[in-house]
């Protein structure tokens, strides 16, 4: 009798647990669909027949009809091409510059016996909590002639105090014995940094570089207020003109193919071309991020540990 109750209890508990498992897996499945669906709709619609898409207007689960002219137009769009090229340039220059500054100043501040270490740290950290704000910065960059010069996107972002502190913390965790041996052999600080510390900073560097690169990829506000010529715009600023401001010149971007010009007169086809723009500018990142995610996660945890 007692035994029977025990078994019954156990079975009930396990049934409850199975229900819990199933419920959680089901909720997570639905959530995954919610994360994926918006982009799926965009992808599917971008290759569908514009007239069917317009008539249906609701959810489209699979392509309705088929055309890839929307993509041909995107790849012909000289604005998209120049936007991509500019983004790559700004990303490489900005990330490289910021990383170099982070590396050398992180090293400088990691020296435990340097007397100016504390004042330097305060000098840097102060800017994290207090700053001039949008307008004084805007006026200054205007005054020193950086307006409409792409360096306006690079120079003010050279110092990233947060990254410098993470770099400093990492460098301080490297055992002193390594550099001491090199000092005895007559090495100076420069060779210590580049020959000993730098090779040991691969993982932290990857994380910091990745985060800076992403912030350059996403940048649209500063190009909008500081760059006046459209041919200097990075991809996100071009996309803003196309997707948010409905700039049809940006959308067509010097189209010459007469058939495409005729197609673009159709309002719903224009929407599909917008979708194609979204896909072309987003899918490269989405293909790459699953392979890099462990670095992103590491970076996020490093950042939060400091905070």
């Amino acid at each position: 009798m007692v035994k029977a109750i025990g078994i019954k209890k156990k079975r009930r508990a396990s049934r409850g647990e199975r229900a819990l498992d199933i419920t959680i897996c089901a909720i997570l499945f639905v959530l995954s669909l919610i994360f994926l669906y918006p982009l799926w709709q965009v992808i599917v619609a971008s290759v569908s027949d514009p007239n069917v898409v317009m008539k249906k207007a609701g959810m489209i689960l699979f392509p309705e009809g088929w055309q890839v002219d929307s993509y041909k137009i995107v790849f012909d769009n000289r604005n998209i091409k120049s936007g991509f090229a500019n983004t790559v340039l700004y990303m490489l220059a900005g990330t490289g510059f910021q990383y170099l500054i982070t590396l050398i100043s992180g090293f400088s501040m990691s020296k435990k016996n340097a007397m100016l270490n504390k004042p330097l740290l305060f000098f840097m950290m102060f800017t994290m909590y207090f700053g001039g704000g949008l307008i004084p910065t805007y006026l200054l960059l205007n005054k020193i002639g950086l307006m409409n010069n792409w360096l306006v996107l690079i120079l003010p972002h050279g110092v990233n105090v947060w990254n410098i502190i993470i770099m400093r913390t990492h460098m301080q965790s490297i055992p002193d014995s390594l550099s001491e041996a090199a000092y005895i052999d007559g090495a100076n600080d420069a060779s210590i940094l580049f020959k000993i510390i730098f090779p040991l900073s691969g993982a932290v560097s990857a994380v910091l570089i990745l985060f800076t690169a992403v912030s350059y990829w996403n940048m649209w506000f500063e190009p909008m207020i500081y760059l006046t010529e459209r041919n200097k715009y990075p991809l996100q600023s071009i996309l803003r003109e196309i997707l948010i401001n409905n700039d049809s010149n940006m959308l067509t971007g010097g189209l010459r193919n007469t058939q495409h010009i005729r197609q673009m007169k159709n309002q719903s086809f224009q929407t599909l071309v917008k979708y194609a723009n979204i896909v072309v500018s987003t899918v490269p990142i989405l293909v790459v991020y699953p392979f890099l995610q462990k670095y992103f996660i590491k970076g996020m945890l490093v950042g939060s540990l400091k905070g």
Partner: peptide, 30 residues
């Protein structure tokens, strides 16, 4: 200290200059 760490301090100069220009001058302009 300055003599012993002169290279290390030199490495901090670019960051200090950039911060003065792009952070501390706008701070004054408030």
């Amino acid at each position: 200290d300055m003599r012993r760490n002169r290279i290390a301090y030199l490495f901090a100069v670019p960051a200090v200059v950039l911060l003065i220009i792009f952070s501390y001058i706008p701070m004054y302009d408030i």
